[in-house]
Design a protein around this nucleic acid. Structure first.
Ligand SMILES: [Mn+2]
Ligand SMILES: [Mn+2]
Ligand SMILES: [Zn+2]
Ligand SMILES: [Zn+2]
Lengths: 177, 177
DNA sequence: TCACAATTGATAATTGTTACCACCTGTAAG
DNA sequence: CTTACAGGTGGTAACAATTATCAATTGTGA
């Protein structure tokens, strides 16, 4: 179990940028200066930025870029598998009356969430009180899935295709663990 | 690894409702009809509802209740540990340029997110293509923590205490999957 | 170089959530 | 059983994040 370091990221980012134009082509996207700037900013960030943060960064080179473009582009990048959203369920707060420790299966189509118990999970962190500078408070395993209904339908209220993940390229040199 | 069944929930909900008034007292909260209706609706729901859904349900008995009260109350219940928010990071979408499989450490104070690699996680689901009706697509382990900075400060924009989790009840009889 | 579909910027609209504040009510003291 | 009042509520305005719209611009392949 290892935190990913800054130098890991720098190398990874360089490799990804080198291939970006080709990847856009493959995904049927035009290679615009805005898209280049946005993916560059995203790959340079260590902290999983929000749209507003990318906007602030990109604006320095493209003062005329629109925030809407940043939102759109980030979603587009996720669609073609060049980025991913860390917050699959960020659109509205979801509450749980079950305060016992447990985890969740999330349908990516309709966003239903079901409880599941997986004893092994907490054990992964057993014996640790911290991870580097981070003091551990708990953990949540989110299992992404498609419910029976959503396996047929294209995807109700959440038309986010979540990319078919045919991706395989460029998952080559990653940070080691 | 077991899905939690409806009958599990029913028993658990009954136990929790029986103690709710006492628990409110302990937390320094008044026991209002609105709060009773909201916790009842939350405990009856299997799908981790959003505020709007609870509102629709509770309205049937309390047609005059305000949506604002539902939002407030759900947050209050989380604060005293009677409920929890499934979506710790729901406020704005966070993007990740790193498409390699990895997991995240989230600071509950400042919401910074750092990459981490934990090889054991995917292994928990190895050999499975589905969980009951759910077809598996992937999983994400979110480790909740406090960064060095936020261990001192009370807790910036996210004062949510995340409840002490002393719970233990009603995780008894489950169905296997 | 050209034609056209894709993309962008500006801005309006929508959605989920929180802030406000006057009125109401659960609580505990008498 | 009253009473006083801190805390809670409803109605609504304000906010923040995101998405929709659409005319103008631009990348692409021919
Ligand atoms: Mn749950
Ligand atoms: Mn990451
Ligand atoms: Zn579904
Ligand atoms: Zn922090």
């Amino acid at each position: 179990m290892q935190m990913v370091t800054d130098s890991d990221r720098a190398a990874y980012a360089a490799a990804r940028m080198a291939e970006f134009a080709a990847r856009c082509h493959r995904g049927g996207l035009a290679v615009t200066p805005q898209r280049l700037a946005i993916i560059r900013a995203l790959l340079a960030a260590a902290d999983h930025p929000r749209a507003e943060t990318i906007y602030a960064q990109v604006r320095r080179e493209h003062p005329h870029i629109s925030l809407a473009t940043v939102h759109r582009t980030l979603e587009t990048l996720c669609r073609i598998g060049e980025a991913r959203k860390v917050t699959a369920l960020h659109d509205s707060a979801r509450y749980d009356g079950n305060t016992a420790p447990h985890h969740h299966v999330v349908c990516l189509g309709c966003r239903r969430i079901r409880d599941i118990e997986i004893p092994g999970v907490e054990r992964l962190l057993d014996g640790r009180d911290d991870l580097g500078e981070f003091k551990l408070m708990g953990c949540a395993l989110e299992i992404h899935a498609l419910c029976a209904q959503c396996q047929r339908k294209p995807g109700r209220s959440n038309p986010k295709r979540l990319a078919n993940r045919k991706q395989s390229i460029a998952t080559s040199n990653h940070v080691d663990s």
